[in-house]
C-alpha cells in the first residue's frame, strides 16, 4: 500500500486546497454585493439592477409580500436578459440603455425566487442568476445542494479508485 499512500497524500492535499479555492470563488468576490434598499410598503419601488457577464448587482433583492415593484435593468457590457419567471417579467437589457418593466405586485408566498438572464450570453450564462427574497424566509432551499453534489462527486472517485489497478478490459 505504500505507493498508494505516497500518491494519496499530495493528491488529497491538492484537491482539498483547490476545492476550498473553488468554494471561495463561487461564494466569495461576487457574493459580497449588498442587497437592495429595504422595502417600503404601499408605494411602487423602482429596483435598479445592473447586469454584466455573468452576474447581476445586487445579487439579492429583498421585497415585502404584496409590495409593488418596477424593475429597471441595464447591461454594462453585451446584451443580456432579466427574467423573473414567477412574476412574468422578462426584459431585454442592452448596453447603456435602461429597460423598465411594468409595475408588478409581488403576490408570491414568502421564499427565495430566481432572477436570471434569459438571453444565451456565453460561457457563464447558466450561472448568471440573482435572488429575489420575498419576506423573511429561513434559508434558500438549495443552499446545501452544491455541498451534497460535491460529496457525491467524491464518492464517485472513491468508487472508481477501488476498481483502478485491475487488469484492463
Amino acid at each position: 500500500m505504500r505507493p498508494v499512500l505516497r500518491a494519496l497524500l499530495p493528491t488529497a492535499a491538492a484537491v482539498l486546497l483547490l476545492a476550498l479555492g473553488i468554494v471561495w470563488l463561487a461564494e466569495g468576490p461576487g457574493a459580497t454585493a449588498s442587497p437592495a434598499d429595504a422595502p417600503t410598503p404601499g408605494t411602487t419601488r423602482e429596483v435598479a439592477i445592473r447586469a454584466q457577464a455573468w452576474g447581476f448587482r445586487p445579487r439579492v433583492v429583498r421585497v415585502a409580500p404584496g409590495e409593488t415593484l418596477r424593475l429597471a435593468g441595464i447591461s454594462e457590457d453585451i446584451q443580456h436578459g432579466l427574467a423573473i419567471n414567477d412574476l412574468g417579467v422578462n426584459l431585454q437589457l442592452r448596453a447603456g440603455q435602461v429597460a423598465r418593466s411594468p409595475a408588478v405586485t409581488v403576490n408570491l408566498p414568502e421564499g427565495v425566487y430566481t432572477i436570471q438572464c434569459s438571453v444565451f450570453c456565453g460561457l457563464g450564462h447558466a450561472s448568471m442568476k440573482a435572488k429575489l427574497v420575498v419576506g423573511s424566509p429561513r434559508a434558500a432551499p438549495g443552499s446545501g445542494a452544491p455541498w451534497i453534489a460535491s460529496l457525491l462527486g467524491l464518492a464517485v472517485v472513491v468508487g472508481v479508485a477501488f476498481r483502478a489497478g485491475r487488469p484492463r478490459g
Binding site: 498508494v4 505516497r6 484537491v15 483547490l18 473553488i22 443552499s143 460535491s150 462527486g153 479508485a161 489497478g165
Partner: peptide, 30 residues
C-alpha cells in the same frame, strides 16, 4: 497498488474540474 497510485492524481484533477462546474452552476442557489 501502483495502478491505483498512478490513477489517484488524475482522478483528483477530474474531481476538481467537476467541483468547479458544480459550484459555478450552484452559485445561483447559494
Amino acid at each position: 497498488a501502483s495502478g491505483v497510485a498512478s490513477f489517484l492524481p488524475i482522478a483528483g484533477l477530474a474531481l476538481v474540474l467537476t467541483l468547479a462546474s458544480l459550484w459555478t452552476l450552484g452559485s445561483g442557489l447559494l
